[in-house]
Design a protein around this nucleic acid. Sequence first.
DNA 1: GTGAAAGCGCTAACAC
DNA 2: GTGTTAGCGCTTTCAC
Lengths: 341, 341
Amino acid sequence: MKPVTIDDVAKRAGVSIKTVSRVVNREPNVRSATREKVEEAIAALNYRPNPSARGLAGRRSYLIGLLYDNPSPSYLANLHAGVMEACRELEYGLALSPVAYADPDMVAHVRAWLRQAQIDGVIVTPPLSDSAELIAAIRADNIPAIVVSTKGPGIVPAVLIDEEQAAHDMTSHLIGEGHKSIGFIIGHPDHYASERRLAGFRRAMQEAGLAAPDDVVRQGYFDFDSGRTAAVELLDLPSPPTAIFASNDDMAAAVLFEAQARKLSVPGDLAVAGFDDTPLSRQVWPGLTTVRQPIRTIGRTAGKALLDAIGAGGMPADVPEPVVMSFELKRRGSTGPHADD
Amino acid sequence: MKPVTIDDVAKRAGVSIKTVSRVVNREPNVRSATREKVEEAIAALNYRPNPSARGLAGRRSYLIGLLYDNPSPSYLANLHAGVMEACRELEYGLALSPVAYADPDMVAHVRAWLRQAQIDGVIVTPPLSDSAELIAAIRADNIPAIVVSTKGPGIVPAVLIDEEQAAHDMTSHLIGEGHKSIGFIIGHPDHYASERRLAGFRRAMQEAGLAAPDDVVRQGYFDFDSGRTAAVELLDLPSPPTAIFASNDDMAAAVLFEAQARKLSVPGDLAVAGFDDTPLSRQVWPGLTTVRQPIRTIGRTAGKALLDAIGAGGMPADVPEPVVMSFELKRRGSTGPHADD
DNA sequence: GTGAAAGCGCTAACAC
DNA sequence: GTGTTAGCGCTTTCAC
């Protein structure tokens, strides 16, 4: 069975192959009637351009890259799905590339990969997106790039939520339920989001006139085990907090785990809140109150912006303002009115 | 910076481009003196063949595909990582393709994708891998394929674990801890593993001389909500089982959730076991006793076997025996001695 | 054993 | 707005 080529489409639509190419690549200067005819033929024949031919002729790969370092599987799956949606429309492919952030040759590895695979643009996820050296190198190689879930070094566009505001709102929610002593578990220090979430927590506490002494703010690393350690420390305090807000769901689940192990009732004895709304937050008992981020939409938005930049022949000279997506508080069983008083 | 092409290498080595091509592709019929000259030139120039040009001229993509339908993110992430390991050595790329199993045009969509993207071979995951129609179509198109986590229709190689034995061993473990009435939650009916795990459960019960009446065997669909429904039904029974074995971790977590909601103590009042050893199994309280599968190794093994077949010019005439990987029982807090008697 | 020529399917440049 | 022509860098085919 011979693959459908651009010639077949051109013949069926009664136009030249160049016009088909224009339609496929969303170029201007095509009359809409012509465009429709071509689109009809593409659909009827179920035509898909041959990526190798495109790459060879266009001196690019029609591939965008997604760089990540060990994110939570659901984060990656959602982001990936979102970026794919953006790619599908423009017939772009998506190449995933795991990168070891801590590798001393990390920047060199990434550059080699981008060049070798002829990647046309990249989406960079935390914590890689906060490596000023990496982002600068990618820009220097003149490869369009976008960072997600962080502002990055400010030299490429970003798509994110207002982490500070989200953490503020969650903290305020806990305060509104009567909690006065709230523990906080910070995320991985290399992530932009960690600092913002802590800032939001502090602002909300301050606005309510509540204290947030150093011993109720603990360092975690976004993983379950560090969350458990932090939970142990917080609950071993002479007067432990009545609520704990962890910077992500994995760590919040660990707090829940430790609370259960101590036979504390949740939320009666201890309220727990997380961040991210991962599947985990619905699967632990009681369900985790958390902040939902539209990861998939972030992926789609970043993908579209990146493809726009590629289509426009590169990144614009001045960096656009970060795109800020909305978030949502999801209230589940792990938080509730504080009744100790 | 102009990329080094095959012409540059040919010029420097003083041979024709065809000879360079022969050396690069490890074809026979090149005198070793010639080969060495060419290799020297390749090294000196740091030449890498352009994948697009290779793909276009050679009518293949140097890409393998991974077909999936909504698997758990951690399953996909691990499998993906394993397949990538296999790809890296041979400079192959990996393209992911989400497929809607229930789509009436599913087979046509997959065939179109394989054809248009010129995919050189595919790895197919459950439940797609159990669609005899799909696998037959892929074989008919003469595209090398391998199924994982299932035996498939038997016309392509498979990499899996002995699901029946694993479920048998877990059931025996529960029996060994004193449970006589054990509930079972079946997985999604379209998955091969579901049937095998049920069979293993039944065999273990039978070997122990225990009954497994129909009302303690409930249908689930591998997701949390169906697990919860099944758990409710089982726990509402006039004499509920003292242990529940769910066919995967998501459903087992739902059993745990329902047990907590009913203030049942686990494992005292109810023991719970899962399957897959997803991250979730360590993050719920108490930790889930479960079966660990080496997903990443399965991916690497399948990837290597597929690349071997591609390199050998296609699938061998007779289908090799399935590769059976080992599994492991992970004992955590959700199971323990039964003390009711 | 080696080379010359003919494309693979598409985009870029420029003509109309 | 649309078509024509000339490659992109490689493998294939078939000469020698």
